[in-house]
Amino acid sequence: MNIFRLAGDMTHLASVLVLLLKIHTIKSCAGVSLKTQELYALVFACRYLDIFTNFVSLYNTVMKLIFLGSSFSIVWYMRYHKVVRRSYDKDQDTFRHYFLVLPCLVLALLINEKFTFKEVMWTFSLYLEAVAILPQLVLLQRTRNIDNLTGQYVFLLGAYRGLYILNWIYRYFTEPHFVHWITWISGLVQTLLYADFFYYYYQSWKNNQKLHLPA
């Protein structure tokens, strides 16, 4: 495993921990999109179908369990926790799941490396992960009033994507036959979605101001 991949995984882990910290200690999920969190739970459930059949390393298995456990517990908190659920901006978080889920499923059925159930589900999870952040970005744009933890959460997620791209570039040059078009293109699309957010995040950091997205 190279340093970019490890750093990418660690920022991904940090993003989840920041979100859980916010929800667990402040007992608030204001500004967090439940739609995005449900999509992530679906992404991990579909991607890690091989968790008990395809052993890569202890590291991989433990990380998979953490991502599955954390994504489902975040959804549980936001839906059912008697205090946390009251802070959920339900009226602002109106993005429809199926606008994202259905096209990704159709695309995974059409474009995949192998037409088997597990492989199509794995491909579906890649396509869905690429766009799962959209409800969150829409919610940020609508509420505009972004607290630090929510801003850091989205920033860390974007950093994780950027580091994965560096990881692929590194692997392409160091490992023979490392070519994965589906992973790369969906990963690139996903990273580009953060570009706008990153721009405003950088501006607010540079000017030492509170993050504020334009209408």
């Binding site: 991949r5 991989n60 990380m63 991502f67 994965y164 990881n167 992973t183």
Partner: peptide, 10 residues
């Protein structure tokens, strides 16, 4: 195996 080659990432 060939199939799991790309699935060693998270």
């Amino acid at each position: 195996t060939e199939q799991s080659e790309g699935h060693d990432e998270l």
